[in-house]
Design a protein around this nucleic acid. Structure first.
Lengths: 239, 239
DNA sequence: GTATTTAGTGTTAAAAGTACACATAGCAGG
DNA sequence: CCTGCTATGTGTACTTTTAACACTAAATAC
């Protein structure tokens, strides 16, 4: 049993003590396979040894929950300033075999390419899985995953979260593929592009794709400043 | 200092111990004044003595967070089966003067008339306030209130939560007034009614209003079963 | 029975969404 | 340099939804 597990055990065996943890569902988008993936690590708690689980940790006494989520993400991926959203708590009294552990779930959106740059320095027990490939997970993590997945799908329609899963510069086809993958639908190219243009939130760059064996597509970036302004005025994003 | 406060103090002074509480923003709709109201209680913690605060309590060891929220609501209002939604956690390290207290905020929707039936048996330190009348609150409760208020406004557009604030039988005008009050907008009567009808979720009753000094309006109920069915099929509510 | 008050209803114009197909730019390979 | 290949990029007609707008009808009070 690892140091982490010892610490948790010590923490929660004191009577009436409720341990508070954070768990992150880390989503990444694999452009090549057109798959939504999540990052999991090998579990260390005896009852679930060898199973895969979300990235989580005990809260520290002097940080906010969001700080804790950021700390975990930086520790496991080397990435800072990751898109994070709190989803909900999971508090069934029997959810953790070592005792009373309540967790706050977040989902995180990262650009897989950024992650790849850091991966060598890091914990090798982490692995990307296709979202539909995962059958069993430690604790109630499968449930947490499903709730967070559903939340991501809702958010994608009403907030510009998709751009956090793509490189800074992307083609219109890439966004469409992302939407089709995450929402599990097919979208009409011309209608989708019209909607995108009407948002007025994409900056058309001078650059085009490279290293493709066909006509290269134009590159765009998402204008976060303009979006913030638009949000401030109460106008809603919708795709 | 009350028993509750002693207990909390004891709880959180043990080193490294993070206390976990639940706070509920209890919304009620006053049809007469056309005002959205919230239920507050007098605070007991010395630093905020006499100020008003949300309905909250320490989590117990063997309940879920939702159980705790329901327990608090029943204790303070006498009501069971209240509409509840988890909103988010509040975890700033300095948010509570007695130590490290993290809270999970819920909002609750109740029919004020149901509450009135119970009010005599209960804690007299509770009071309804107009949502815009509240200036100062204990802890970070003003902030929690604002976040929950915003959440309610979002939900009202996309989920049939408004019906939890009205009597079981209501007139079309009553719903419209509720929407106008909560969203702080004016709505077109004919367009609003058309939308309502097209939802197909209202049951027209044989009954009509009584005790009004003019033409009485027809009464309706909301068909929760049909809504559940519609939700299951992936169709979305929108008003 | 007359005045008062709120209930209840339909049409038109503008905007948004949906369905649908082909010419073109750039690369690869001979 | 010419041909074939592949994915890019674009417009129009139709349907549905939203938005704006005003009067008659039903019931009560006096």
């Amino acid at each position: 049993m690892s140091l982490e597990t010892d610490k948790l055990k010590k923490f929660i065996t004191e009577q009436d003590k409720i341990a508070l943890t954070v768990d992150c569902v880390v989503f990444g988008y694999d452009e090549h396979d057109k798959e939504l993936k999540i990052l999991l690590i090998k579990n260390e708690v005896p009852q679930f040894l060898g199973m895969w689980s979300l990235l989580g940790d005990l809260m520290k006494i002097d940080e906010t929950i969001e700080d804790a989520a950021n700390r975990i993400l930086e520790y496991r991926t080397g990435l800072k300033d990751v898109y994070l959203e709190e989803v909900q708590s999971f508090s069934h009294p029997k959810r953790h075999p070592l005792g009373r552990v309540i967790t706050i779930a977040y989902y995180a959106l990262i650009k897989i390419s950024d992650y790849e740059l850091n991966v060598e320095k890091l914990d090798l027990e982490a692995k990307w899985f296709n979202i539909n490939e995962i059958e069993e997970m430690a604790f109630d993590h499968k449930n947490i995953l499903e709730v967070c997945h559903k939340r991501l799908q809702e958010r994608l329609k009403e907030r510009p979260v998709g751009f956090s899963l793509l490189p800074k510069k992307f083609t219109l086809q890439q966004i469409q593929n992302l939407y089709e993958t995450v929402l599990q639908t097919e979208l009409d190219k011309r209608n989708f592009r019209r909607k995108l243009k009407n948002l007025g939130l994409l900056k058309e760059l001078e650059e085009i794709e490279t290293e493709v064996a066909h006509r290269p597509a134009r590159l765009y970036t998402f204008d976060y400043d303009k979006y913030t302004e638009m949000e401030r005025k109460g106008r809603r994003f919708s795709l």
